[in-house]
Design a binder for these strands. Structure first.
Length: 984
RNA sequence: GCGGGUGUGGCGAAAUUGGCAGACGUAUCAGACUUAGGAUCUGACGCCGCGAGGCAUGUGGGUUCGAGUCCCUCCACCCGCACCA
């Protein structure tokens, strides 16, 4: 009986499904454990070997925890709404609902073959009304809540209204730039006026603002969806536009999102990324008076700047305001009018991308001067695009000796630089040190910069010209998309007022449409529907991250039609104990879901305020690309980029070794080779024109599946593309394979070039997991994915190595059944040597799995099977424990062998083995004895004896005495049961 | 530029608290069994050396009886952010 994986894997998968063995309910006497994968967007392109990596890791851990007696929640679902789904549907001319349904089916088919232990009864699909009902419901609560900074939590908006009615705007004084009003004034406002004020406080709000508009996608994008000025999806240009848009007031949670990072187990890199995105900085806002050189109508305004370095106040040589700054017109003097207008026009002409690509130093003097509040020094006020309107106050005090950008600006425009840091400033570049003792700084002379910060702040505050101030880089998140495929907002507009729908009206169904092209005036496709617009419903939809911000809660209570998740269910399951996914969601999904969790916790709808206790980021599996080298079209008199005609040209490929030798300048036989290569080409391919002395060639990606190692499968390659059918090859040894060449020459090796790149269809380096599962089985595939290396690390895929893991499983099988002899396992008692192997393995497997070191755990299993094979151990007593240990990794084969051993119950219900320390103890054996690290002799000893006994034994030994030569030892160390070291 | 991470055989990698570096697997070579094998098994496999032995964890230094591991210097690569005052 041999190991035939395909039959048994199918059998067990069917049994698991039929028996619903992975289904869990919401109560158990066992401790709970929640293992979650970042749920996938069901894309249409199919899986490659990189996709299941995280799912396999989480599955192993979930199975491991189950065996160890935990009640494990391990669900899976689909993030079906969103831009990519709609874009895919548009590109393929199908309805997103249909393509999503089809993609989910394909996805599920592929996943099912790998043998996961998901509780599919809890599956969620964010595009189904039963789900988005509650996304809309949470949105209504965000809309109907505001953030009370004194209580540091979200509370119902009704409390704000009550406060306005009784005490006017006192409760929110200083919150935003709103004029204060009294209680009676509030009552006198029109409804529209009242609602406009409330809108300033709602956690989900609608407002005008500068947004990232992507013309190609026809929608607004959130900051994290824009990378280097282009859209994350599709790489289309993005421009800034002022639009009416929904936002999430995530900035109110900035501090708590930052503090919360201390309570969770995320990698340093992840915490760092989030902290950076939040970008908290401590500084001060300072008001500068303006010099009264010219008449100003309505009095002189003050210029308010934000700085993190108030200590450098005496180094201020100029001020810079953003081109969009509201004071630009008032600060521009008559004689500067023309220049300023030209400069503003220039700035407006530049796109976001241009600004990022070429960081030119540009700017324009306004003609006005500000006054240093401490010494009255006149400071010119400039305009420049390097100051951003959206951060701080949109104006800065420039200290060229201490800030690189300010210094470059000063140099460019010839502004004199004041040195306040003495020898720290060399006149050639700025130095942002905080170590210097201040000079040229009036009352701060001789004071250390770090201390000066506090002194200046104190003085600013006592003089009433400045305040300490905390700033954040993070902005409120754009929350609407002018798209069809998303949750409709439960909002109705009337006379410019947004009215929330009643909870009873939910879900507000996404209407079925045939045409989901963009609507008029930058509105979403829903604006095309009369039945929608006649009800005055909001026409944009929610972004992709809306549904994913809370899906981990829905899994706890997926079929609840009355609540998003019952408090009982969320109290039972609590935080996600282990969350596995990629790093790409660092500042998007992970930040939003943390915010939603905090919000729901503020409203006491759930009992915890961080969603994920531990986050594990799986690394990327890179593709190993292969290249062939084709004689360039140039050699046939064609331009390299001439697209047409290449198909008809002779396709001649030169082997990698030859390419290397003729391209390397150091190659000794380079000239010689080039000549013979040219001769061969000239003799066999009359079309070729020799240009200079060179042979020109182009590297082309070739499908990795046509290559064995680096050797090209010529026959398969010829079949892969029409134009390759008549291809000719020059092999490593200069032999030739060409359609019109003699037969004998045709046996040679064509070697390909190799490079590690991101796995992608366009690079022909993707490997399909389904094919591997068919060839080697799911168990082999699962183990090999883990064996590749640490889960968190990026590593290249190499299909060759999978053989080793497959051999291991066959070897394991042979401990039970022999091809010739049949059953070989016995019920005989195990020997000490066998039990030693077993218990060592139990310990190692338990420890390694617990710390997510799945690669070393697989190795440990291989070692165990090798050793048991060497010992010819076929004892049931040992083998069945080995099977339990291996079950999380290779569940199918373990189930099969377990039942073949005659067990009536499933291995999934077997108790996880416990280490017996007796068998881990060291027996007496020879240990090297070293003096000061240098091995001098060997000694028979058992290191399990206590320290004194060991020391006494060692020192009593004659040869040790001899080596010590009368010197007394300072310390005796025995090292990891491996050696004894005497330090003298 | 700033922040984070990683550097160990031909390749993927082990070495958990500072303790015999390279486990395990691949690749390669040699051999056994075979009609044959892409099945199975055995052996070799960091570098130098016939050998004893010596040298080796990106570079240079330091701490230590002992460093891949701790500290400092520099270099390379990967990821993230990028005018955030």
């Amino acid at each position: 009986m041999e190991y035939s994986f395909s039959g048994l894997e199918k059998k067990w998968q069917e049994k698991w499904t039929a028996g619903q063995v992975y289904r869990v309910d919401n109560n158990s006497p066992k401790p709970k454990y929640y293992v979650l994968d970042m749920f996938p967007y069901p894309s249409g392109t199919g899986l490659h070997v990189g996709h299941p990596l995280g799912y396999i890791a989480s599955d192993i851990f979930a199975r491991f925890k189950r065996l160890k007696g935990f009640h494990v929640l391990h669900p899976m679902g689909y993030d079906a709404f969103g831009l990519p789904a709609e874009q895919y549907a548009l590109d393929h001319g199908v309805h997103p609902a249909d393509s999503t349904r089809q993609n989910i089916k394909n996805f599920r088919d592929q996943l099912d073959r790998i043998g996961f232990s998901f509780d599919w009864s809890r599956q969620v699909n964010t595009a189904e009304p039963g789900y988005y009902h509650w996304t809309q419901w949470i949105f209504l609560h965000l809309f109907n809540s505001w953030y009370n900074r004194k209580e540091k939590k979200a509370v119902p908006i009704q409390s704000l209204i009550s406060s306005f009615e009784t005490a006017g705007s006192a409760i929110v004084s200083g919150y935003r730039r709103l004029p204060d009003f009294s209680a009676s004034a509030w009552k006198g406002f029109t409804e529209k006026e009242q609602q406009d004020i409330l809108m300033e406080f709602r956690l989900a709000y609608c407002g005008y603002g500068e947004v990232n508009w992507c013309e190609a996608l026809g929608t607004v994008l959130a900051n994290d969806e824009v990378i280097n000025g282009v859209s994350e999806r599709g790489g289309y240009p993005v421009v800034k536009r002022k639009l009416r848009q929904w936002y999430l007031r995530i900035t109110e949670y900035a501090d708590r999102l930052l503090e919360g990072l201390e309570k969770v187990e995320f990698s340093e890199a992840m915490k760092e990324m989030q902290a950076n995105w939040i970008g908290k900085s401590y500084g001060a806002e300072i008001d500068f008076d303006l010099a009264a050189d010219q008449e100003q109508t309505g009095g002189l305004p003050k210029l308010r700047v934000y700085t993190t370095r108030p200590d450098t106040i005496f180094g201020v040589d100029f001020m810079v305001i953003a081109p969009e700054h509201e004071l630009v017109p008032r600060l521009t003097t008559e004689d500067r009018q023309k220049d300023v207008e030209e400069y503003i026009a220039y700035v407006n002409s530049r796109s976001e991308r241009e600004r990022m690509a070429e960081k030119k130093i540009s700017g324009c003097f306004t003609g006005s001067y500000a006054l240093n509040p401490f010494n009255g020094k006149r400071i010119p006020v400039w305009i420049s695009e390097y100051v951003l309107a959206g951060y701080g106050t949109g104006a800065i005090m420039a200290v060229p000796c201490g800030d690189e950008r300010d210094f470059k600006f000063a140099q460019h425009f010839g502004i004199p630089v004041t040195n306040i840091i003495g020898k720290y400033f060399n006149g050639k570049e700025a130095n942002s040190t905080k170590e210097a003792l201040l000079e040229n700084s009036d009352f701060l002379n001789g004071v250390a910069m770090k201390e000066a910060i506090g002194l200046v702040n104190d003085r600013l505050e006592s003089l009433g010209i400045g305040n300490r101030r905390v700033n954040y880089k993070m902005r409120d998140a754009a929350f609407s998309r002018q798209r069809y495929w998303g949750e409709p907002f439960p909002i109705r507009w009337e006379n410019g007022i947004a009215y929330p729908l009643d909870e009873k009206e939910l879900p507000l169904l996404l209407p079925e449409v045939k045409n989901y092209k963009p609507g008029p005036d930058g509105e979403g496709p829903l604006a095309n529907l009369p039945e929608w617009t006649s009800r005055h419903l909001e026409t944009s939809t929610m972004p992709g991250y809306a549904a994913s911000s809370w899906y981990f809660l829905r899994y706890m209570d997926p079929h609840n039609a009355k609540e998003f998740c019952s408090r009982k269910a969320s109290d039972y399951w609590g935080q996600v104990d282990l969350y596995i996914g990629g790093t790409e969601h660092a500042v998007g999904h992970l930040l939003y879901s943390r915010m939603w969790t905090k919000f729901l916790s503020d409203l006491d709808l759930i009992g915890f305020d961080e969603p994920f206790r531990k986050l594990l980021n799986q690394g990327m599996i890179q593709g190993s690309s292969r290249f062939v080298y084709r004689v360039s079209p140039v050699m046939f008199g064609h331009e390299m980029n001439a697209a047409n005609g290449i198909k008809e040209l002779p396709q001649i490929f030169i082997s990698k070794g030859i390419i290397d030798r003729i391209s390397s300048k150091d190659s000794p036989d380079r000239e010689e080779l080039m000549v013979s290569l040219r001769d061969i080409l000239a003799a066999n391919f009359p079309d070729i024109q020799m240009i200079s002395n060179q042979v020109e060639f182009n590297p082309l990606h070739v499908d990795v599946n046509l290559v064995d190692g680096t050797e090209l499968d010529i026959a398969a390659f010829k079949k892969s593309k029409d134009e390759y059918g008549q291809a000719a090859f020059i092999f490593e040894d200069f032999k030739i394979d060409s359609p019109n060449y003699s037969r004998e020459e045709k046996n040679g090796r064509y070697l390909c070039g190799a490079e590690t790149e991101k796995m992608s269809k366009s690079k022909f380096n993707t490997v399909d997991p389904t094919g591997l599962v068919e060839k080697y089985g799911a168990d082999t595939f699962r183990m090999y994915e883990m064996f590749l290396g640490p889960v968190e690390q990026s590593k290249p895929w190499d299909t060759k190595g999978i053989e080793g893991v497959h051999r291991f499983l066959r070897k394991l099988w042979r401990l039970f059944y022999d091809e010739a002899k049949g059953k070989v396992w016995t019920t005989a008692a195990a020997t000490d040597a066998e039990l030693k192997v077993l218990h060592k393995t139990i310990k190692k497997m338990d420890e390694d799995t617990e710390r997510f070191s799945f690669n070393t755990a697989v190795s440990a299993m291989m070692i165990a099977v090798n050793e048991l094979t060497d010992l010819k151990c076929h004892k049931k007593e040992v083998l069945e424990k080995i099977l339990i240990l291996l079950t999380p990794y290779a569940p199918h084969i373990c189930e099969e062998l377990w039942s073949l051993l005659g067990n009536a119950f499933s291995i999934l219900d077997a108790p996880y083995p416990v280490t017996d320390p007796t068998y881990l103890a060291e027996t007496e054996k020879q240990y090297p004895v070293a003096i000061n690290g240098k091995t001098r002799t060997e000694l028979n000893i058992s290191l399990d004896a206590n320290q004194e006994q060991v020391e006494a034994l060692v020192l009593a030994d004659d040869s040790v005495k001899k080596w010590l030569d009368g010197k007394s030892p300072r310390k005796i160390i025995y090292v990891k049961n491996k050696m004894i070291n005497i330090v003298v």
